[in-house]
Write a protein that binds this DNA or RNA. Sequence first.
RNA 1: UCCAGCGUAGCUCAGAGGUAGAGCAGUUGGCUGUUAACCAAUUGGUCGCAGGUUCGAAUCCUGCCGCUGGAGCCA
Length: 430
Amino acid sequence: MKTTIGNVHKHVNETVTIGVWLHNKRSSGKIAFLQLRDGSGFIQGVVAKAAVSEEAFELSKNLTQETSLYVTGEVVEDARSPLGYELQVSDLEVIQEAVDYPITPKEHGTEFLMDHRHLWLRSTKQHAIMKVRNEIIRSTFEFFNKEGFVKIDAPILTGASAEGTTELFHTKYFDEDAYLSQSGQLYMEAAAMALGRVFSFGPTFRAEKSKTRRHLIEFWMIEPEMAFMDHEESLQVQEEYVSYVVQSVLENCKVELGTLERDLTQLEKIKAPFPRITYTEAIQFLKDQGFDDIDWGDDFGAPHETAIAEAHDKPVFITHFPVEIKAFYMKPDPDNPDVALCADLIAPEGYGEIIGGSERIDDYELMAERYKEHELDGPAYEWYLQLRQYGSVPHSGFGLGLERTVAWITGIEHIRETIPFPRLLNRLYP
RNA sequence: UCCAGCGUAGCUCAGAGGUAGAGCAGUUGGCUGUUAACCAAUUGGUCGCAGGUUCGAAUCCUGCCGCUGGAGCCA
């Protein structure tokens, strides 16, 4: 009977066949231990000389790393195994012999591993990160579906930028200029006016020459947009959403978090509500901490964000940023028009900003004024202004960066390991 | 784009003016409970590229290329 490593617990004391790759091997004169992986998990196969044919034992002694094969054997419980089960191998059949697999069980440098990303994904740590990433995506869809959101897909080829600030990837759209999307937000606003509560999940592109552990050229964003919802209500959705995702990972990725040696006590604390401080309070806090390189009106740098995050053991919202340093569509606070009804969510442990969100301008006249200030016109923007013309309503939304969230939840050092094939400065392959 | 550091065997690194080293991987042999297994033997090099200084350069100098970390910008 053919099965997978993930399902061996259903076949205890039965003989099964599993298609596997040889992850590693230890052998002595009369016994060989095969570390086997099949994508669903890892299991040790024990080949005892007495229990198999002469040929099968010789074969197992000479297996090379990453050789693909079918192993047949009896599933037995064994306390010495981390999985709790082992496979007592009775036969094996090589599918393809792998010669000189480059990634050996010893340590490697970053450049070497990145050049071999297509093979590096096979290692236990990378495997665990991809499983956690998948759980974050799965629980995201579950959360928003549960809350009555409709998944809407934004276009990737666009005629103009949403923010107008960051560098865009330029391309041709037949005879016109086009850009790769850096946010689906404007389209989500249109969709929210049609469907009420929507969210998008898709790739975004930033042609910034950023070279830090928090930046990717191509990354994935989750962008919910909600009609009839003000800024404060949006913050509640955000903290409930993030808490839901973290608790789902804790529940469903125990083995993976163990592989990653993640400090679970840090994650167990992540439950709504999250603390909030205003931008103005944050500036004062930083000055009290001894920062003299920032004043009201400046945006935060990485050290500032980290200092604010370290003062809390949950993600923290920084709200009410100055209007000047935020996007043109953010709604000014009626009580203080110098600041916007917006918030960034800063992850704990120095992982930086994972969410940016705001209530959007819903007044036609004000938006038209902003268009003039920012010199936005033409067919690329006209339609967005029209949304304020036909039944405009208060609405809010936010964008969560998937990879930064994966980095934080898995506790890994660098964002490049959170996406299967990262696009970085100077790296387009593999 | 700016600042700093690093490029030596397939991989991770040592060697800092006198002519190339270790561990791992590979190969061969040994071992019935290994967990980055262990023990013994063994293969393996245009010292990133180009120029310069010197009797002599992996080593010192200059330029270029590549990588790594950080800054800015952002999610």
